[in-house]
Amino acid sequence: GTRAGAVYAEPLAGGVRRFQERHGVSADGVIGAATFSRLEIKPAARAEQLALALERLRWTPLLESPRMVVVNIPEFVLRAYEVQDGRIDIVQRMRVVVGQALDKRTPLIDAELRAVEFSPYWNVPPSIVRSETLPKLRRDPGYLEREGFEFVAADGSVHTGVSAEALDALAAGRWRIRQRPGPRNALGDIKFVFPNAEQIYLHHTPSTGLFARDRRDFSHGCVRVEDPLALAMFVLQDMPDWPEARIREAMDAGESRTLRLTTPVRVLIAYGTALVKDGRVFFFDDIYRQDPRLQAALRERAAPARAD
């Protein structure tokens, strides 16, 4: 252990930086509120967190497919890896932005990534239309053209003018609204599609500044990836006619194109608040408050059955 002197200096400051790195705080050596609150967590609570992480790993199918893409929500990290002889070989690791903890949480998913959409349209979900898009269009009709939106009628025809009729049809759900491919598109220049009931997908984003934040729960539920080109190269690696240059070209084309994968890639959106990396234990904030729920469920299962 390091003896604390009268002055906060090395090696104690270095120890604090290492602690911060393992607890999801910017490793600046400054003992701010976030660092102090983590220093106060008792070892018994951390041991319980590790036990919950082990329980989750027990039923998470991390080795069941030869190639996997796994997002760990509390860590805000995606890993793409290959499984060889029962061992994980990590090919890509990148930061992600996930759904807001308050009301737009990213669900846990086990699905197959079947297609990549280059220069995608963004079909605005009805919930976002109601809460954000419609109010903005009513206040400022110029928002439609500025953001590259267009209306799509029930018969598939496309309309680019804002009118009372268009807004009423949108509000009633008869029309929908989408954003054209381009630099302002909310999905960026690529979308990774794995069919699931919650309509969640991985995609790029023009809002790249959010990847620099320590805590990255800002989306409406879908997962934004920091390095979509690297992820595309991983999922398309067994399609030799899609080298890096061609992928870049399709991402920059500004024209929507869907490419089906020859071999689907397993996608897991998982949840673990503790992880061992290179022999060191890392802890992450339980942003969706899942640990107490799992704890309660395990206690309930362990409790002896009561006689009637």
Rank of each mutant, 00 (worst) to 15 (best):
L62R: 11
N185H: 07
G24R: 00
G173K: 09
A27M: 07
I41Q: 15
H203W: 03
R301F: 01
I31R: 02
T263Q: 14
D189Y: 09
S127D: 12
D308W: 07
R93D: 07
G272D: 05
F19Y: 08
E255S: 10
I200Q: 03
Y271S: 00
S131E: 11
R260N: 07
A27L: 07
W242C: 02
A296R: 06
T133N: 08
E48H: 02
M239V: 04
G1M: 15
E198T: 03
L275N: 15
P292I: 00
R146I: 09
K277A: 13
N123S: 13
V83A: 02
G148H: 15
E226L: 02
G15W: 06
R105D: 05
T106W: 03
L210M: 11
T263V: 12
G272K: 03
E10K: 11
I190A: 01
E255L: 12
A305R: 09
A232E: 02
A274D: 02
Y271V: 00
A302P: 01
L108I: 13
D103I: 15
Q92V: 13
G99K: 00
T258H: 09
I41V: 15
Q237D: 10
D168E: 12
K104A: 15
M68G: 01
Q92K: 04
H203G: 05
R146Q: 12
R95M: 08
R58I: 06
R224P: 10
P120M: 11
G156P: 03
P304S: 10
L259T: 10
G32R: 14
L50P: 09
G221L: 10
G161H: 12
L57E: 15
A6L: 15
R280W: 10
I73H: 00
I128M: 05
G14P: 09
L137M: 09
A166R: 05
F283W: 01
R266D: 06
Q20L: 02
R38F: 06
L298M: 13
D286A: 01
Q179W: 06
A33R: 14
R17W: 07
V225R: 02
V225G: 01
P61C: 01
A212I: 08
Q237G: 06
F19H: 05
P135N: 06
S207V: 09
T160V: 08
I247N: 03
V116W: 00
Y201F: 15
D89H: 13
G182N: 11
I177G: 10
A270R: 05
L275G: 07
P264N: 12
D238Q: 04
R246T: 15
G173Y: 08
E147M: 11
N72M: 02
D168N: 08
D103Y: 14
I269M: 04
T35A: 03
R301G: 05
M239N: 08
A9V: 10
R22A: 07
D89S: 08
G86D: 01
N72C: 04
A250C: 04
D238C: 04
G24V: 00
A153K: 10
